[in-house]
Structure formats: C-alpha cells, structure tokens
Design a protein around this nucleic acid. Structure first.
Lengths: 199, 199
DNA sequence: GCATGAATAGAACGATCGTTCTATTCTGCG
DNA sequence: CGCAGAATAGAACGATCGTTCTATTCATGC
C-alpha cells in the first residue's frame, strides 16, 4: 500500500517494514513491538515511530507487505501456466512452497488467529485479504471447469474451502511434526482432492 | 494435570484456571497476563501468582484444562457410538460443535500458532497433545477399516491429516466469514472425504 | 553554501508486565 | 480455643510497552 516513489525516508520505511515482517513471522503480530524493531534496524524508538504514527499502522503495513509477497510468490508466477488445471496445480504447489520455505509461520495465518475475534482495522483488513484470496482461488477453479478438466458440477467455493484446509493443515503439521511428512501428506491430499473433481 | 483432591486453595486454583481459560479463548496465550486474570477473579496479582509460581505454569495449566475439555466434549461422548464409521462421524461432528460452540477461538489452535516456533515447555506440551489427538483420530479410522466400512487400503494418518485440515479450515472461516457457511462447507467436505474412503 | 523542511534521536510520561518480599488474614487440626 | 501453616494482600522492583515532546542532525532545492 506504500509505493517507493522516491524520498529518503521512504527507503528506510521500507527497510523497517522488511525487518518487522521477519519479526512477525517469528513472534506474531502481537509480538511486534516498536522497541524491538527499532533495535533491529539500529534506530531509536521515536525514529521508527515517526514513520507510522502508531503501532497499529506499522502492523497494517506489515500485513500489506505479507499480502504482496504472497501474491508475488504464489499467484503471479502461476499466471504463466495455462488456464485450468495446470494453473490451479501451480497455485497449490507454490502455496505449499510459500508455507514451507521460510523460517517462521505465515503472517496471514497468525493474523487470522490473533485477530479473528478482536474487532478493529486489522481484523477488517485480514478479512479483506482472505476474501480476495478465496475468490481468486475459486476463479482458478472455475477456469478448470471451463476447460473441461474439472466436472461441471464442481462447487468452486466448496473446493476452495477444502484446498484451503489442506494448506492450513500442512502449515500446522510442518511446524509441529516436521516438514517432510507434512509436505507429503499435503501433496497426496491435493492429488486426491483434485482427482475427485475431475470431469 | 491437577486433581481437585480437596483443600481450600485447590478450589480457587481451579476457578482461576477457569477464568484464565476464557481469557485465552479471546486473547490467546500471549494475551494472558496475571494482572488481568487477577482482576477477573477479584484477587490480587500476588494471590494469583502464588498458585502457579510463574506465568508459564499458569499457561500450562490452561493448556491442560483445554485438552481435558476437548476430550470430555469430543472424544469421550463419541465412545458411546459403535466402533467404526458411527464413532468416527461422531468425532467429526462433535469436533465441529466444539470449534463453533463457544465464543473465542480454540485454545489449542491458538497455542499451536503462537508456539510452533518458540522452543520451550509450552511448545512441547502442545506437540504432545496434538500428537495424541492425531493418534486417537487415526485409531478411530483404523477401527472403521476393521469393521469393513472403510477400504482396506485406507491410510489412517493420511485421512487423519485431511480430517484435521477440514476442521482447521472451518475454524478459520467461521471466525472470519460466518458460522453457518463454514459449518456447511465443513459438513460437505467431511461427507466427501469419508465417502472417498468407503469400502 | 545556505536556508528549509524532513528525518531521526533522546528523554520522559504513565501504564502494565512478571516477579519478589513481607505482612496479614484465614482455615483446619489437635 | 489456639496454634501452625496455608492462602492472600500489598507494596515495591526493574523492565518494557506505546506515545509525546523537544532537539538535533540530515538531505535537498535554490
């Protein structure tokens, strides 16, 4: 939500968000404090604060950054695949990579759990991103129906829900039980799910 | 992990845990502070503290309490159903009720997200409970294989993983998008999943 | 190169955190 | 009833929190 138009301060602002992003991955959004991120970037608390005006605004900036990273690493590359099953499977595969690749949990999952019953700006933005993600997922599914690769009676929102569940379970298991087992469970689940909807 | 043998203090200890449990449902484990729970039960901070010796011990007590509640409301009642599909479906149904019934998120889900990469006693106990839950789930599935209701080639851990994913997705959706839609998605997903494993 | 405004630092604020220590109140056994 | 020990309160600790205020440093257009 913040373009790097130019400006000296915009650069440091982006670097602050970048550090904060990694802190959030390890500590969650509630674990993100201005003092911690200030020390991490080698600035003073007030120096960091001045860029955002409040902790909540910093949290929102990190949330936006996470959504953008997700789009860049999962959805945008999948657009290079042909419409239909190839693209849908690319999304699923890259989504798994996204959840497994980096250290720390997925910020979107953290945000959903931490703010799902805490009314406010953050919760609303989480809902916005999650709604958009689900819609894009459903659209990719509908394309696979149009190409005739998935059955005409496929309920795209239902399938998107089940797909989401597989990713969530893999995220959960990978962090508690180990990456490899979680990945193979998720891969098999994805295959089974898509196969069950084949035309 | 704490028996209510007798004793005056054991009663107040239990009531403290009970209040803390509900705070955790709304605020998560990291949002649980001794001061807050003290005010909630009408005691002094040090009075509450003396019962546990540390905040971490209080968090563990709440985690144990949550696990016990889950067992009492989901698994134990399901034991009254006949081994096999009826019992497995009862688990799934009661699990959904558990996740939807009360206000605030599931403490187990919160704990898993908050401590999945924060080494320590809490993370280890989360892993213990999650491992046990998965094993019990797999055992219920294997029984349904033994009764001949599920196919002999059913991979119980794989099916348990996918079942877990459906519950996670429903928990997620219910808190962000609304209860009814999430419940119906989860119900349909469960039916499809079990049907795909039928003998 | 100098003035102007942005960018950052530093100190201080009230609040809350977990924890410790010392007293006081309460409970239950003899 | 009285006494020992559990149960609780209260005050204080150092630390950290988000935020505000005032300076000071920096970058930059003229």
């Amino acid at each position: 939500m913040q373009a790097a138009t130019a400006g000296k301060g915009a650069i440091t602002r982006d670097s602050i968000i970048d550090r904060a992003y990694w802190i959030v991955r390890r500590e969650g959004f509630e674990g993100l404090s201005i003092g911690t991120v200030a020390t991490s970037v080698g600035m003073s608390k007030s120096g960091v604060f001045a860029h955002f005006g409040s902790r909540e605004e910093l949290q929102l900036a990190v949330l936006d950054s996470a959504a953008q990273r997700f789009a860049e690493q999962v959805f945008l590359p999948a657009l290079r695949e042909r419409r239909g099953l190839p693209r849908l499977e690319a999304i699923g595969r890259r989504w798994m990579d996204w959840l497994l690749s980096e250290q720390g949990g997925c910020p979107m999952v953290s945000a959903a759990i931490e703010y799902d019953d805490r009314p406010g700006v953050i919760r609303e933005r989480v809902i916005f991103y999650q709604t958009r993600l689900r819609a894009e997922l459903a659209r990719a599914i509908e394309m696979a129906v149009e190409t005739g690769e998935l059955g005409k009676d496929t309920d795209s929102m239902q399938l998107a829900f089940e797909l989401f569940g597989i990713e969530l379970a893999m995220h959960h298991d990978s962090r508690l039980f180990g990456f490899e087992e979680a990945r193979s469970h998720a891969r098999r689940a994805l295959e089974r799910l898509i196969a069950s909807c084949r035309a």
